[in-house]
Write a protein that binds this DNA or RNA. Structure first.
Length: 584
DNA sequence: TAGAATCGCCAC
DNA sequence: AAACGTGGCGATTCTA
């Protein structure tokens, strides 16, 4: 379980050494690539070492002495040799920021490990141990890399790069045996591009945001005062000491609010929006409580504290994107979660381009329903998209036998709920709650929906069954989503897996498409433009004002190309807008 | 008392 | 009791 002996080390401290190394490296089929930095933030930390490994030896580039990586640029940006990295996004960000190098031809052992779906733990040490039976000492990882390096640091740095080659040799056959070659190529190509998105960040107008926050603070305070009066006044005991009551009742506490409501004669099983919403019209205090919670949420998540995410050096927000954040293959984001900014204009208009530039906002229209049409092959659903007509209206027309031009608002609304519900594996009771109908009515609607789209019924049934039986779902991009099959006796667990089995291939294929678009865009966009945000089926690019309309066209075309890689029987529509803020 | 668990809610 | 999928996160409450 010890590390193999280290191949010879070659220090690179000047341009001629680098050129010689580049010649040797370009002959390799694959090279291990790793970097050591003084910190995690590309804007505030420096690259200290660049380690490049071949089976013959490891080159150590002293980045404090070699400022120009020119001789390596072509090699790092070309598809060959393969660059093997662990968590390529991290190194790619530094290389792009410090040297303008757009890393390509990547094999990422971290992503490979995640795709292979082994147990948790995808750090290099865990992966090396799992695949090579080697124990790596990572104590040097967080050591001080800013000054002179100890022998131990150098050994550690070289070993991290050297280990990547045998690691790839071990993982590649496993990926191929598991039919994961296609999705691995997709993820590997997207990784440096996603690093580019983090590096670019997105500008937030702090003045505007703060004004919005202040407005909400006033709202919040007024609602809190009114609620305290109404809720505390109801308690005969507390009514004797209203001042005390005002200071003790915590409006953010579910049990406390529940008790206070009970004293008003309003006993509720839950205090969430779904439960209280229908009661709001009859009870003003509940309406006020919901308003209060809205303001409280706005303030805690999207108040003044949000400004701390603005990077002092760039003046922009640089969220973390988790490439394989969801089991379905979707990305997740954090610090902040840029994918859950309120969809209201007053928030979104605070996200702006630099002066003289524009935001180009593009999104796929109803992509998951188009994927549903593709995978089910349902002739009517495919035809609906081919016709280019209003899908929900068309669905309503088929469900209710109403001529297209006579479809009522209510009919269209119900058809829309059905269309969206199908993507989530919704059942009769879920639909009934959603649209406020009886269970029988919901059952009738579902029956009408499946009568309109018979191919959808059979596919969904099969997808649910397959997930339960095999413990696996697949996407059109070749992604395999594996999980422990449910206990057949556990009806709830079985139902849950059935719903997942219906949704995951659709959501996951959507992720495949968006990631493909990200990778293609990174290669096609001119250097003056960059992707600044991605929200599942939406891509935002910042571009010079003068070329924004051309970039919009390029964005649309590229997103369509990405979709066409996986959807061959259904047309895909992309809508793009050029704007001065993140508002379409 | 720190961290885990839970509730509630934001997005697509 | 549950009730349509995927996440992240703030505030409160629980737990060791």
């Amino acid at each position: 379980m010890t590390a193999p002996s280290l191949p010879p080390l070659t220090w690179i401290t000047d341009a001629s050494g680098l050129e010689e190394a580049a010649r040797a490296l370009s002959r390799a089929e694959a090279i291990g690539l790793d970097t050591e930095t003084t910190g995690l933030d590309p804007y505030r930390s420096r690259l200290r070492l660049i380690q490049l490994a071949t089976p013959e030896g490891v080159y150590l580039v002293d980045a404090t002495r070699v400022r120009d990586l020119g001789p390596l640029k072509a090699l790092l940006e070309a598809p060959r040799p393969i660059k093997v990295l662990h968590h390529a996004k991290f190194d790619a960000k530094f290389l792009r920021h410090r040297y303008g190098i757009r890393l390509a031809g990547v094999f990422d052992t971290m992503l490979a490990s995640q795709l292979l779906g082994s147990a948790d733990g995808h750090r290099l040490s865990a992966v090396a141990s799992r695949w090579l039976g080697i124990s790596l000492d990572k104590t040097m990882q967080r050591s001080d890399w800013s000054g002179a390096l100890s022998d131990e640091q150098v050994r550690y740095a070289a070993q991290d790069a050297a280990i990547l080659l045998p690691l790839r040799d071990a993982m590649r056959p496993a990926l191929l045996a598991d039919q994961l070659g296609r999705v691995a190529a997709l993820e590997f190509a997207a990784a440096p591009a996603i690093g580019g998105i983090e590096l670019a960040g997105i500008r937030l107008d702090g003045v505007k945001w703060l004004a919005l926050a202040r407005e909400r603070e006033r709202e919040h305070a007024a609602l809190a005062e009114a609620l305290h009066r109404e809720l505390a006044g109801a308690d005969p005991q507390l009514a004797l000491f209203p001042e005390l009551a005002v200071s003790t009742l915590n409006l953010n506490s579910v049990p406390q609010v529940m008790r206070a409501l009970a004293q008003l004669g309003l006993s509720v099983p839950d205090t969430d929006d779904l439960t209280l919403g229908p009661l709001a019209s009859a009870h003003p205090v509940i309406a006020k409580l919901l308003d209060y919670r809205h303001a409280a949420k706005a303030l805690s998540s999207y108040g003044e504290s949000f400004l701390s995410y603005i990077h002092p050096e760039t003046g922009r927000i640089h969220p973390d994107f988790h490439q394989l954040g969801a089991d379905t293959g979707r990305m997740a984001a954090s610090n902040p979660n840029i994918q859950q900014i309120p969809n209201q204009e007053r928030y979104r208009e605070c996200f702006v381009p630099d002066p003289g530039r524009k935001l180009v906002i593009a999104d796929y229209s109803q992509i998951e329903l188009r994927i549903l049409a593709e995978v089910t092959g349902d002739a009517k659903l495919r035809h609906a998209f081919e016709s280019g007509q209003d899908l929900h209206k068309l669905t309503a027309s088929m469900m209710f036998g109403t001529p297209l031009e006579q479809v009522s608002k209510g009919e269209r609304q119900r058809a829309k709920a059905l269309n969206f519900g199908m993507v989530y594996g919704m059942g009769p009771s879920g639909l009934a709650t959603r649209i406020g109908s009886s269970l029988d009515e919901a059952k009738d609607l579902i029956e009408r929906y499946f009568a309109a789209y018979p191919g959808v019924r059979s596919w969904l049934r099969q997808a649910g069954r397959k997930a339960v039986e095999t413990g696996e779902c697949t996407t059109l991009g070749g992604r395999r989503i594996r999980f422990t099959p449910p206990d057949p006796e556990n009806r709830r667990a079985v139902a849950g897996v059935e719903r997942f089995g219906k949704n995951a291939p659709l959501q996951g294929t959507s992720a495949d498409i968006t990631k493909r678009a990200i990778a293609l865009l990174d290669a096609r966009l001119p250097a003056s433009s960059c992707i600044v945000n991605v929200v599942h089926d939406e891509i935002v690019v910042e571009a010079p004002a003068g070329s924004a309309s051309e970039i919009a066209e390029l964005l649309c075309e590229t997103m369509r190309d990405a979709a066409a890689t996986y959807l061959t029987r259904v047309p895909v529509t992309v809508e793009a807008d050029v704007a001065d803020s993140w508002v379409k």
